[in-house]
């Protein structure tokens, strides 16, 4: 069974791409056949994997099911981890989706033929609330939501949970955490106590994560023993545990 996990937040610059790239790598390292679809027209995941941000026929042809997504996939430097690259035309994906009767089903339909090939599909989403994000909500089994520990971010999480209403599951985690800031510590403590969807693992604000853009690869390749790599490892453990709990409840 393929599990679709989307890194999502309405805000930009909160660590969605870093999470998508490192978690997808960890999934493939554990032996799972993994695909990452870079839905963000900025193509940050695609850049990190050193792949050209170009999809033949663009996003429009893809959502019209006129392109075979299997033919657009590129292998990454990591065995078992493939990438469906970003394309600048994805910036018009909302417009492309609007033309359909049930626009929010389209991403699911694009992914359907790939389901047999992968154990995990990660969607790295652009920061917005739009028809694309609604399609992501429909396609995903879980949203992985990075939140910076600040008051406004916690409000965003509550709003998101109201919108999705339990489907897909929301798995929030703290990102860009500065343990020296009292505000961060307080917000984390309060939110974890209030909201069971917040995971225990937290990603620190770290120069190592920033260096990913220079090294153009996952943390495990250049800082495998660093704090950030350990944090993503713990986060992946938390995500798998939650997914396991949902699966056993569903049975």
């Amino acid at each position: 069974m393929t599990r679709v996990l989307a890194t999502y937040n309405i805000k930009g610059g909160v660590g969605k791409t870093s999470a998508a790239v490192n978690l997808a790598y960890l999934a493939s390292r554990d032996g799972a056949r993994t695909l990452l679809w870079d839905l963000d027209p900025q193509g940050a995941s695609t850049f990190l994997f050193r792949v050209r941000p170009k999809v033949k026929g663009g996003g429009r042809k893809l959502v019209r099911l006129k392109s075979d997504p299997a033919k657009l996939i590129k292998g990454t430097d990591h065995e078992g981890l493939d990438l469906l690259p970003a394309d600048f035309s994805y910036r018009h994906m909302d417009l492309a989706l609007e033309r359909f009767k049930r626009p929010t089903r389209r991403l699911t339909r694009v992914l359907d033929p790939l389901r047999g090939d992968y154990d995990y599909v990660f969607l790295d989403c652009p920061p917005s609330i739009s028809l694309v994000s609604e399609s992501v909500f429909e396609a995903a089994d879980a949203l992985l939501v990075p939140i910076i520990p600040a008051t406004l971010s916690s409000r965003t999480l509550v709003q998101l949970e109201t919108v999705v209403n339990g489907c897909p599951a929301v798995l929030a985690f703290f990102s860009m955490v500065d343990g020296r800031k009292r505000l961060h510590r307080e917000v984390m403590e309060r939110l974890r106590a209030e909201n069971p969807s917040v995971l225990a693992a937290a990603i620190p604000a770290s120069a190592e994560v920033e260096r990913m853009g220079v090294e153009r690869t996952v943390l495990a390749d250049f800082a495998p023993r660093g704090r950030a790599a350990a944090a993503y490892e713990a986060l992946w453990g938390d995500v798998r545990e939650r997914l396991g709990e949902y699966a056993s409840r569903a049975q």
């Binding site: 994997f49 050193r50 792949v51 050209r52 292998g75 990454t76 430097d77």
Partner: peptide, 10 residues
């Protein structure tokens, strides 16, 4: 050996 392209991608 990894054969690389101009972006040094395997």
């Amino acid at each position: 050996f990894d054969v690389l392209d101009s972006e040094r991608k395997t």
